[in-house]
Design a protein around this nucleic acid. Structure first.
Length: 273
DNA sequence: CCAGTATCCTGCAGGC
DNA sequence: TGCCTGCAGGATACTG
């Protein structure tokens, strides 16, 4: 669910509100997330530090600190970040709480525990096993030059290739389906059986779909950050994802869905070839 | 190296 | 009402 646009919106929200106060303590429960969450290790590393403006890489958040060091955060499927008054009751599955000296807390909540929070020593992000493998940033202007030849070199379905974070970082199941619909390409089409012209169109669709979703997130930023400081997800207008059985907004055909590469994938049988 | 599948986890929807 | 099953999908380990 949290794909690049949602993570970017969270980043922008945190950028406004997180820098400043000092960390006074850390609490929570060490528990198995994607990587083991070790509260006892984080505690001495975080106390006394202040957050700077956060960064994003793919679907990862990098919460930079001063003195230098970073928290690496991934929201997985159900991860949420809350920046709230300490008095607000904790939701279930709150795994980590970072206490700030202005009476607020940064909380990491993740029922399904597919997310992660990990410490990065300054300058080591290039060696992090997850970050090091990430492909091109989809909003980078180089995307339409870099991505097409990569896709051309593979014979897997384009839908699966778009989800491969080593090729392009930040696309998930929702925006992969949307970008393929927008560029008129069938999700099962092999990368190496697609012309460079069409792949360039796909790269542009990826950029525009993600860019528009971020804009919408930006316009709802105030609501989105919420009265209770909860940073979750927003609903964007979707053309195919989750619309199987409904009519294509472009041609009126019935949207279909099948499992491709282990992921349910919706597409329009008429618009996408 | 590449492609495809299994795995982790909880909440929720649907069937009966 | 309650129980069961299956599905949702991030990244990654594993298999062929």
């Amino acid at each position: 669910m949290p794909e690049l646009p949602e993570v970017e919106t969270i980043r922008r929200t945190l950028e406004l509100d997180l820098p400043g106060p000092r960390i006074t303590s850390v609490s929570g429960r060490s528990i198995a997330l994607r990587r083991p969450l070790d509260v006892n290790r984080l505690q001495p590393l975080l106390i006394g530090r202040q957050f700077l403006a956060p960064r994003r890489r793919g679907k990862f958040l990098l919460l930079d600190l001063e003195p230098p060091g970073s928290l690496l955060v991934h929201l997985g499927m159900t991860g949420r970040i809350q920046l709230v008054k300490a008095s607000l009751p904790r939701r279930d599955h709150t795994h980590l709480v970072i206490h700030l000296n202005d009476g607020r807390q940064l909380r990491f909540v993740d029922p399904r525990r597919f997310g992660l929070v990990d410490w990065l020593d300054p300058g080591t992000e290039g060696r992090d096993p997850s970050l090091a493998k990430l492909g091109v940033e989809p909003l980078d202007p180089s995307l339409s030059r870099v991505l097409p030849p990569l896709l051309r070199s593979r014979r897997a379905p384009l839908k699966s290739l778009l989800l491969d974070q080593r090729l392009v970082a930040g696309i998930g199941n929702i925006y992969a389906a949307e970008a393929l619909w927008r560029s008129g390409i069938h999700p099962r089409r092999s990368g190496n059986r697609t012309s460079l012209v069409r792949l360039r169109r796909l790269a542009e669709a990826v950029r525009s779909v993600l860019g528009e979703a971020i804009e919408k997130g930006g316009t709802t930023l105030r609501d989105f950050a919420g009265a209770n400081g909860e940073m979750g997800f927003f609903a964007v207008q979707l053309s195919v994802y989750g619309r199987q059985g409904e009519r294509c907004v472009n041609c009126g055909s019935t949207i279909r869905a099948e499992v491709i590469g282990g992921r349910t994938t919706a597409w329009c049988p008429r618009c996408q070839r």
